[in-house]
Design a protein around this nucleic acid. Sequence first.
DNA 1: ACCTGAACACCGTTCAAGT
DNA 2: ACCTGAACACCGTTCAAGT
Lengths: 238, 238
Amino acid sequence: MTQSGTEAAPKAKPRRGRPPSTSLNQTLILDTALAIVESEGPDALTLRRLGADLGANHTAVLRHFSGKDEILLGLAERLIQEAMDGFVPAESWRQTLESLARRVRAACLAHPQVAVLVATRVSRRGAEFHGADVVIGALREAGFADRDAARYYRSLVDTAMALSAYEAAFAALDSQSQEGDRMAWRREYLAVSPAQYPNLAAVAPFLAEADADDQFETTLALILDAVAARAITLRPAT
Amino acid sequence: MTQSGTEAAPKAKPRRGRPPSTSLNQTLILDTALAIVESEGPDALTLRRLGADLGANHTAVLRHFSGKDEILLGLAERLIQEAMDGFVPAESWRQTLESLARRVRAACLAHPQVAVLVATRVSRRGAEFHGADVVIGALREAGFADRDAARYYRSLVDTAMALSAYEAAFAALDSQSQEGDRMAWRREYLAVSPAQYPNLAAVAPFLAEADADDQFETTLALILDAVAARAITLRPAT
DNA sequence: ACCTGAACACCGTTCAAGT
DNA sequence: ACCTGAACACCGTTCAAGT
């Protein structure tokens, strides 16, 4: 928001002079913030910690970002770029869609705190337009008319984003709550009363061994199966 | 966790005597917490604010919940209770699953602030167990073996919860940001360069007219189509 | 122009003391 | 048995003062 707007920025710095070169700048701050979140989790990212790692007072950071929220938005921008970075369309439309869904998820899980933020306020910028164009292109290639392509685009993107944010939100919990929830699956679901919840009790052992990666792939396969099935009915002879 | 365990609770209160009747209890605390979150958002829910609204010291709450996290889990259970309230299984397994998915979404949209706060948590309590038992029962009725029933249960519940939370997060935004985001869809996506993003530009008019209810139904139908297709291959003669 | 350091108004949790 | 009030170790942000 403070940089690279398409319109005139209200508080734009002069672009002419040399940057301070000593001390802090936005890029350095974001690099450091990212390193903290990745190595020690979202809770470790405090202004005081950021200042310490930067070798500066913790309030010096506020000279470059208007607040902590602004730092998170800066990280969000990086997340979208990371998801699309180096992407090339695959041979089939289905593989292209799978690849994009996995990229979005991977980026979200790599930066869960940021992902939770991005999921709600989607920035309508270059990287997002590019992704949308690729997804819609894949659906049109599959044979869908524009109206259906738009519908399934929304379904695919919303689901991929929602599931990724959902997983990221769990990963963004403090490790205590996280472990408590994980334990709950193993212990309390396994200990459920077979008389009261017969179906749940029967399959509980399989629930306990659930793996997040497999789970995402299962859901992705379900949706793309359905989309592929509808595509086939459009041109049965292909 | 502090109440209604199926086994002997470690710190069980004596069930005989009159409850304190004056002062605090879990139900009253959760009622108050719910009111705070709904009216002023998740950030307003602090122990001090809770104590003030209850007319008690902010630490008195910790006599009934082991910590703030325990209160959040209590709110999560309430949300699921509301979703399950008055539910009766439908005639077909597919209708049962559709009904549950819509109920979860409706509860989340009715209390978006609460949904955002607790959607990712596992409440491990009665209503959640009941919902899980019904979903798994429907999948077994569809003909799936226990391992697959467990897998598709996770896919269905995670997707319904994730999409509901995703929508709730948007509904939980202040109306100003909400309208700004909606405008962005109409304006910026429609104004996209056809040369740069040909596919996106072609279907943009259909994207602008997207409706949230229809969108949810589309996604739900896609997933259940795929599940049904896999169920049919299990017993082709039924 | 940029950074510092103290101060401010919070937060969740602990614990000895009251009743 | 339940609640209180002080204390503790944090947090993000503000602002006058330095350089």
